[in-house]
Amino acid sequence: MTYAEAVADGIWAADVARVGYIPSVTVAPVINALVAADGGGDGVSPRVTPLSREEEAVGVLGAVALTGALGAVVMQDNGFGNALTALTTFPLAYHLPLLIFANTRGGPGEYNSMIHSISQPMPAILRATGLPVLELDRRSNAGDWRETVREAGVHAVMTYRPVVVLGSFWNTDGKVA
């Protein structure tokens, strides 16, 4: 099992009903694994679809919880800059569970000279808004990534709020950027 497959497996194991994603080269293998497990291809399946921006993903997938199910968003951490108002005024304010997996940028393995400006402080920014954040990197194996993602979904449902998992793919079998 690759790290990307572990993330995808953890999302489905959390009993997620629908996934929306905003593209990133790092999470593309996660998307491909999600889509394959859901019987689709070319980035789309019955329960996995692309979205154009992170704040929209929060609205579309956050609304899934209104029906008693769980939605998930797969994205890149710099996109939280687009999504903070949506996160705080919709799922956080209305106590709606939402599972978010985001790959991290701006750390080891980064090629872009400025993306660390948004990505490096993101865990602290998210925590400052009241969002719980679980961080994963090379120090844990793929099996631990799977269980952490799955438990993050369970925790989101149990605590009626979004839960964020940040994954650094550097020095794993994945691609950073």
Binding site: V58, G59, V60, A63, V64, T67, A86, F90
Partner: peptide, 22 residues
């Protein structure tokens, strides 16, 4: 009625997600 008290711009997104889930 689901009033979105401060989530300006999200009405269509929330309605879309809800429609897909029902």
């Amino acid at each position: 009625h689901l009033y979105l008290l401060d989530a300006m711009g999200l009405t269509g997104s929330v309605a879309t997600g809800l429609a897909l889930s029902l």
